[in-house]
């Protein structure tokens, strides 16, 4: 396959005041780093460091990859993207994670 380059400007058109592109193609990538989906959360997982045994189950089970391993046996929740599903709290064998209502 030959190397192709898309003339992105040629994909743009305007209907009224709204700019669209052919097939809704976007030139920018990485929009996820700008859109913090953690705002969807209504329950926030709080980790009690005293109870945590560093087993890493929360890290394994988080469906969104929002528990980060900071060091050996040290795990931290990424609140920018955590949607508060509560799976980590459910899986924690020592009940070190509690889900608390988000408040403004």
């Amino acid at each position: 396959m030959k190397k192709q380059r898309i003339d992105y400007g040629s994909l743009k058109s305007k209907i009224g005041n709204v700019e669209v592109t052919t097939g809704a193609v976007l030139e920018s990538t990485g929009s996820t780093s700008k859109t913090k989906t953690g705002a969807w959360r209504s329950l926030r997982p709080l980790v009690d460091d005293k109870k945590c045994i560093g087993c890493g189950r929360c890290w394994t089970y988080c469906p969104e990859g929002c528990v980060h391993k900071k060091a050996e046996k040290v795990f931290q929740v990424d609140y920018d993207y955590c949607k508060g599903c509560g799976i980590c709290a459910n899986e924690c064998p020592v009940k070190a994670i509690t889900m608390v209502m988000e408040e403004k």
């Binding site: 190397k3 380059r5 898309i6 994909l11 709204v18 809704a24 193609v25 976007l26 990538t29 929009s31």
Partner: peptide, 24 residues
């Protein structure tokens, strides 16, 4: 002319179309 897989020109294909853009 509008969709390729080319690391030198990354594109987002099939993004969400919010109510502000879907009709257009």
């Amino acid at each position: 002319t509008h969709a390729i897989l080319e690391p030198e020109q990354p594109l987002t294909l099939g993004p969400i179309g919010f109510p502000s853009h879907y009709m257009e």
